[in-house]
Amino acid sequence: MDRFYKINIAVLLVLSVITVGMLVQHEIEVQGSVNPKFTKKAILKRKYEKQMARNAWLYGKVISLQKAGQSVQAIEELRKIMANNPSDAYASVLLGRLYYQQGRLADAIHSYRKAVQKDPDYVDKKTPLYIGDEIMELISNARGKLNREKRLKPNDTKIQTAINDIYYLQRRIAGGCE
C-alpha cells in the first residue's frame, strides 16, 4: 500500500467517523431537547384526545337523543351537522349506529364503510378510535339476513351493495398492509 492509498483511507475513515458522530450527536441532542409532551406518541395521544373531546362536544345532542331511543330526531340533528362537516368520519359512525338502532342494516353497514374510508383509524387496533368489534357484531347480525334477502331478491342491487360493504369492512378489520 503506497502513500496515496494510506492518506486516502485515513481521510475516508476520519470523514466516516465524523459523519456518523455528527448524526448520532444531533439525534441525541434533538431527542434530549424534546419535551416529553412533544414526542411523537404524546402528540398522537393528544390528537386523539382532542378529536374525541370535539366529537363529544359537536355530537353531544345527537348522542343523547340516540341514548333516549329517539333515533329519527337524532338523524335529523346529525344531518344538520353533517351538512357543515361533510368529511367528518365520526358523523358516519353515528349515522351507522342510528340506522342499526332503526334496524336499517344495509344503510348502517354502508355508513360504517364510509366512516372507515374517511378515517382508517376506526379499524386500527392501535388507536383509541378502534370500533372493529362493534362493526363485526353488526356484520354477524346482518350477514344471515342479507343472504336470505339476496336469495329472495337476486337482482336487488341495494342488497348486493350491502354484501360488498360487509366484505370490504371484513377485509379492513382483518388488517393487512393497507
Partner: peptide, 17 residues
C-alpha cells in the same frame, strides 16, 4: 437504529405493525 428526524416512522396503520 438512530432514527434521524428526516426518516419517517408512522405511528398508525401498517407502519405501526
Amino acid at each position: 437504529l438512530v432514527r434521524p428526524s428526516f426518516i419517517i416512522f408512522g405511528q398508525t396503520g401498517p407502519a405501526a405493525r
